[in-house]
């Protein structure tokens, strides 16, 4: 399976989905007008990956700012990872946030409470 790499812009984050290592990253700022359009590529790629994932999958999120539409897309990604976890695959989510950013920490906690998948909050 080919890796998916999307370079960041002023409105979209950097995306690295490395199928060889099972390590995925979304970093930066996510405020696209068409968040669904942007994250569809990620969701489609994940759907394909979830058919035969590696022994362990780690998804790292490090977002400085994102809009509400992106938040819904992140939830869709989390749900996919949750499904993989429920299907018996080892999946973990790491929510990196600026230790000064209480809102981002709170957002991570909200997601954590909503999901049934290992979800680690990592202050940086």
């Amino acid at each position: 399976m080919r890796n998916l790499v999307i370079e960041p812009t002023s409105k979209t984050p950097k995306v690295i989905l490395n199928a060889d290592l099972g390590i995925f990253e979304i970093t930066g700022r996510s405020i696209p007008e068409d968040a669904i359009g942007f994250y569809r590529k990620v969701l489609d790629w994940l759907e394909e990956y979830s058919k035969s994932p590696l022994g362990e999958t780690i998804f790292k999120f490090q977002l400085e700012y994102f809009n509400t539409s992106s938040s819904k897309c992140l939830l869709d990604i989390f749900r996919k990872l949750e499904r993989m976890h429920k299907n018996g695959h080892k999946v973990s989510i790491r929510w990196h946030y600026d230790s000064d950013d209480e809102d981002m920490a709170e957002t991570g906690q909200d997601y954590q409470a909503l999901l049934d998948v290992p979800f680690e909050l990592v202050p940086v």
Binding site: T68, S71, D103, E106, T107, D110, Y111, L114
Partner: peptide, 10 residues
């Protein structure tokens, strides 16, 4: 609920 909380934070 999550989105509303986040929207309020934003």
């Amino acid at each position: 609920q999550v989105l509303t909380t986040q929207a309020t934070q934003l």
